[in-house]
Structures are given as C-alpha cells and as structure tokens.
C-alpha cells in the first residue's frame, strides 16, 4: 500500500511541481511586490510601503472608473449572451432546413483568436472605410467609435456578444440534450403550451448549466483584453478603459510593478468572491432540485 502511495505521488509530482512553479510562485511574488512602491524607472529603487498600495486603490479614481466600466461590461455581455444563447439553443432543438449549416457558421467565431476578432472588427467599424459606418451613414446615422464614447462602448459589447454567444449556445445545447424526456411528456399530456414548457420545465432543469455558463462568462468578460485593445485601446478618452486594459497599461507602460501587483491581487480577490457567490448559488440550486 505504501509503495502504491509513493507511486501515485511520483506520478503526480511533475504536475504538482509545474502547478506550484507557474501558479503558486507568481502569486507569492506578486504578493511580495504589492508591499512595495516599485517602478522600474525609479531612482530610489523598491521602497517597502506595507499595505499602502491597497489603500491607494480605494482613492484611485481612474482605477475605480475602470472597475465600474469593467463591471458594466460584464453585466451587459452576460445579460445579453445568456438569454440569447438560450433562445438560439432552443431554436436549434427544432428541425428546419439549413440547421446544420447555420450551426457551423454560428460556431466559426469560436475558432478564431480574440486578437483576430479585434482586427476584423476594426476594419468593419473603421469610420473611413468600414462597411458598417458606411451603410449606417446612408441611413442618416453617424457611427464613429473614435468619437462617440457610447458607440465605442456598445461596439465592444457587441463584439463580445458576437464572439462568445456561440459558446453559450453550445453549452446550452449540450445541457438540453441531457435533459430527461419524462417531464416534457407529462407536460404535453397536461396540455402545457410551448412557453409554459420552457418556463416551468426547461429553465429549472437547465439551471445548473445556466449558472455554470454564467460563471465562466463572468470570469472571461471581466478579463477581456484583446478585442477591446484592438478596437479602441480603451478610448475614446477612457470610455472603454476596462479594468483589464487599465491594469495592462499600468504594468507595461507605466511600469508600476508594486501598485499593479496590489491591483492584480484585488481583482483576483474580487473574481474569487464573485465565483464563490455563484458557486454557493449553484450548490443550493442543485440541492433544491
């Protein structure tokens, strides 16, 4: 038995070592850096400041604005992607001509790298040569993501929805295909209409899948970067400077390693809290069903 245990640990060791090296060590290092005022270009070097960087976060209006923008982005994207994904997944349970083709085309964005998606939408939205502003101008609508902050913001939301709704559809389709048939048959016998079936049978049964998908999408949208970086770089002004963009600029451009480490840790903490809340919700809903 002892020999077998040693064998198991021996097999696990490389993975555990890798996880420790690339997962735990960087977090410890960030934790260490967060206690210092440290800019690469500083003449005074690293200065120990304790928890001052965390205190600074609370009064940093730029950070708070980017956090607010980031959370608004999360709420809007998830708030649209999930219902839309659920609707499309339900429609795909029906039989219609061209369903296979539709499903293939719909999933294409998932196969593309976010940076490619960003580049593609930059061309589509280009105020000078982009087809979208061109046709909207013909309809009397001026669409310019370089000028109008609202349009820039909603364009990033739109791109995220376009990119990630297919993922939501796929997870919901997988969930729908695994649902038991008996409740549906019973509902039909009882004379329930399509809406009632959807509202009182499909949605409750699909709740764990919905919440898990929401869980994944919240984490993803909170750390959105590539598409927004390509499309607007956080502009115009600070209209799309989401917290992920703000953090990257602070690290790579300002080289504020101490403060940005504290910010990273805070964002990690925030993500963990959000996920913990959702996990609790998922667990309680699973217990209820």
């Amino acid at each position: 038995m002892r020999e077998r245990k040693a064998q198991v640990w021996g097999l696990l060791a490389p993975t555990l070592f890798l996880m420790f090296a690339i997962g735990v060590v960087p977090v410890i290092y960030i934790l260490y850096l967060s206690a210092f005022k440290y800019n690469v270009f500083s003449r005074v070097g690293m200065v120990y400041t304790g928890f001052n960087n965390f205190r600074k976060l609370v009064f940093d209006t730029d950070f708070l604005k980017s956090l607010r923008l980031g959370l608004t982005f999360v709420v809007l994207c998830c708030g649209i992607e999930l219902p839309l994904g659920l609707l499309i997944a339900n429609l795909l349970t029906l039989e219609f001509r061209g369903k296979g083709l539709f499903r293939t085309i719909m999933t294409l964005p998932l196969a593309m790298a976010p940076i490619t998606i960003g580049s593609m939408w930059v061309l589509l939205m280009n105020p000078d040569i982009g087809p979208i502003p061109f046709y909207l101008r013909k309809l009397g609508i001026e669409y310019n993501i370089g000028v109008n902050p609202t349009q820039a913001f909603f364009t990033t939301v739109l791109v995220d929805i376009w990119h990630w709704t297919p993922f939501v559809v796929l997870t919901f389709m997988a969930g729908l295909s695994a649902l038991p048939k008996q409740p549906y048959e019973a509902a039909l016998v009882d004379g329930a209409n399509r809406w009632q079936v959807f509202r009182y049978i499909t949605v409750p049964l699909l709740k764990p899948v919905i919440l898990t998908t929401l869980f994944i999408r919240i984490m993803d949208t909170f750390r959105v970067f590539d598409e927004v970086w390509m499309l607007t770089s956080g502009g115009p002004g600070t209209a799309t400077r989401y917290v992920s963009i703000h953090l990257v600029r602070l690290v790579l451009q300002s080289m504020e390693y101490g403060y940005s480490s504290a910010m990273s840790l805070f964002l990690l903490y925030l993500t963990i809290v959000m996920c913990w809340l959702l996990m609790t919700f998922i667990s309680s809903s699973q217990e209820a069903t």
């Binding site: 270009f41 902050p149 115009p236 002004g237 451009q253």
Partner: peptide, 22 residues
C-alpha cells in the same frame, strides 16, 4: 528623460481625455 515611458502614459491619459472631450 529616463522615465519617458511612464511619463508617456500620463500624457496619453490626459491628452486623449481632452481629444475625447471628457
């Protein structure tokens, strides 16, 4: 200006805010 990179970030922030009309 050895610190020109972090400086550029500050200039970018405020100039782009002015360009955007913020």
């Amino acid at each position: 200006l050895p610190m020109h990179r972090p400086l550029n970030e500050l200039y970018l922030k405020w100039i782009s805010k002015a360009v955007a009309g913020e």
